[in-house]
Write a protein that binds this DNA or RNA. Structure first.
Lengths: 198, 198
DNA sequence: TTCGTCATGTAATGGGTTACATGATTAC
DNA sequence: GTAATCATGTAACCCATTACATGACGAA
């Protein structure tokens, strides 16, 4: 989880822990937050595993350029070759490990680095998952609606609507993916369907 | 968390572990699920703490009435006096422990057993929490929108809309609570505002 | 008699959090 | 000089999950 997020971010540019956490917040937004207490140990673990390494050409000299103190602190990490492989491996996963509640958001956040077919399969997997859940809630609601008190009922219905909303969202995304998937027969279709990444 | 849920359910009627888990699913719906691996140890812990006890007048003889085998298995639990106190204590909490992401749903599910003022304070606390989050995302989005790729942007906006939606939901609930709060001066207002529980 | 589901439980593990400790740098 | 925030890290803990083990009971 954190691992994928870290690899994904470091693939864009080298960063140090503190920065990483802020980018994590900005990237994942509402849906997940990590604390330093999990970030730093993870970073260490990943360094030990050889996926990331301290960046020598220290990307420090960006703004104002503080003088040449050989100061410690601010450990900038970058991906290693193994790290890139590991990232590719994680981004290629198109199973439950990519579409469950806890994981989907992180995978989605790095769809820009994910193969189009994998994207579609993850989106569909998640949608199916949510449709199952929706049917479960609907059935349960049909069975027990009359016995539920106001608040439990409110909770069920709000939950149901949330799920329905996410299903619609996913359906739109899937359609967009399908439309922008270049048809195999004609590679010269006009390129209206570019990705937004710089 | 689980503790509150178990106390809340057992307050309605005695249940055994397996049943408890199903009721848990039906009550909490989309928003949380617990596994047996956490339920049974919790049950044991709560029994050791004296909050629940094995029910002697075994509520077993409901349907079909299986013969008089003195069989083990099916341990039916009920609340003890201490358990009721503990439940009351948990239901009276109106701080972050009641309105954070992980806890709110469980507290809400037992609003039927919660004091009206506490209900409103929890709903307001949660709303404030979500409004803060919303502003955070909006600010971050305003700052970085142009630099975000398609998918990250989609994720942010979907997250933002989810938060906005929940805020609206909470606002409605708060208004309903306010309307149905009996004005102190006149206890004889017509009872249009009953709760749904049987 | 075998399959599903009801029913209870344990052991190992996981993936994080909170709280704490420390210190450098920047802005006022 | 002092407060905020940048920056790194550790230790203790928490709350759950997965996988496994076991077995009774009812229906086909």
């Amino acid at each position: 989880m954190l691992e994928l997020a870290v690899l994904g971010l470091l693939h864009e540019s080298p960063l140090h822990g503190y920065e990483l956490r802020q980018r994590l917040k900005a990237t994942l937004g509402t849906f997940r937050a990590f604390s330093y207490g999990s970030l730093y140990p993870t970073l260490r673990r990943m360094r030990d595993a050889g996926w990331i390494a301290e960046d020598e050409g220290n990307a420090d000299v960006v703004a104002g350029a503080p003088p040449l103190t050989g100061r410690r602190g601010k450990v900038v990490y970058k991906l290693t070759a193994e790290g890139k492989e590991r990232l590719a491996e994680l981004l290629a996963e198109a199973g439950p490990s990519a579409w469950e509640d806890e994981t989907f958001g992180v995978h989605f956040a790095f769809f820009g680095q994910t193969a189009p077919e994998v994207r579609v399969r993850i989106l569909e997997g998640r949608r199916t998952r949510l449709e199952e859940r929706r049917e479960g809630v609907r059935a349960s609601l049909a069975r027990t609606r009359s016995r539920l008190d106001r608040y439990t009922l409110q909770l069920q219905e709000h939950g149901l609507e949330s799920v329905e909303r996410e299903v619609r969202w996913l359906t739109e995304l899937i359609e967009t993916e399908r439309r922008s998937a270049t048809p195999q027969t004609d590679p010269s279709t006009h390129p209206t369907t570019g990705r937004g990444a710089p």
